[in-house]
Design a binder for these strands. Structure first.
Lengths: 142, 142
DNA sequence: TCTAACGTTTACGTCAACGTAAGCTTTATG
DNA sequence: CATAAAGCTTACGTTGACGTAAACGTTAGA
């Protein structure tokens, strides 16, 4: 009785079985539905279906969030796949685990490199800004 | 008299007029000559010529370094162009300066976002690694 | 009932950032 | 002298990450 249409909204917000439509995710993350379907095409997402319609779970939503974070960091979708696959359960194969640890080292290295790059860039930007302001003061009165 | 062939190597290393060939830069930065020429095609570099041959200055080398840093950060070449142009002298136009300061704010915002993303990712990686090691210990003895 | 909003598949198009190949010139060296 | 190494231009090809359009199904509301 307390059950409304499940594809509209379940009765509470923090349900573990919360579902999302493709357009909901599209709006929430400001990404086109085309992109979301593309991520599925290349196997980065695999939502359940109700009939033909895609139904996204919390886990799917998290994966999408990770994909988009990767994009902001300039990773390719393949890079993101590697990272995201690290979170998957059932990686109990020992060789897999060792390979994973190596992959993690590598990613960490890349990220530290990025941190370095960013701090340099931020310094540069600060300097550039200071120069601008300086030029405005010096030059603005002429 | 102390002048050796200028295109081989000037007599010291920190000469302001140091020159580089395309293959030297290619090796130093581990990027193909094709890419370097491409950056020139789209106006990101404009080295002098000795005859037909490109001669890169310190300034050119710096620009290339900035381009590649931008790439590591996932910037498009157009993004890099904007940033790099901030360093150019002769930006004395006041309106330009104000626009520049705005652009700097924007870049700073993006970079801070990236910093946030990276720190999250690093945390995730640490966690993933810990999980791996844990799984190795627990599972490795079976 | 019809039409508007959302969903689907299939498939060709596009854009950035180069890769790759052909064909030519210049320079150094056995 | 010849031939290898580095440089050049021109131009078509490729790859990733979607955009865009067509053509169709389903559901809610006037």
């Amino acid at each position: 009785m307390a059950k409304k249409a499940a594809h509209t909204a379940p009765d509470n917000g923090s349900d573990i079985s919360t579902e999302y439509s493709i357009s909901q995710l599209s709006q929430e993350f400001d990404v086109t539905t085309r992109s979301i379907r593309h991520y599925e095409d290349i196997g980065l997402l695999s939502p359940n279906r109700r009939g033909q319609t895609r139904i996204y779970s919390q886990a799917d939503r998290t994966r999408l969030r990770l994909i988009l974070r990767g994009k902001r960091l300039g990773l390719s979708l393949e890079d993101s796949r590697e990272i995201i696959d690290m979170y998957e359960p059932g990686k109990t194969n020992i060789d897999q685990l060792k390979k994973l640890i190596d992959a993690i080292q590598l990613q960490r290295h890349k990220l530290n490199q990025q941190l370095d790059d960013i701090s340099k860039l931020l310094k540069d930007l600060n300097q550039a800004e200071a120069d601008c302001i300086d030029a405005l003061k010096t030059n603005g009165s002429q």
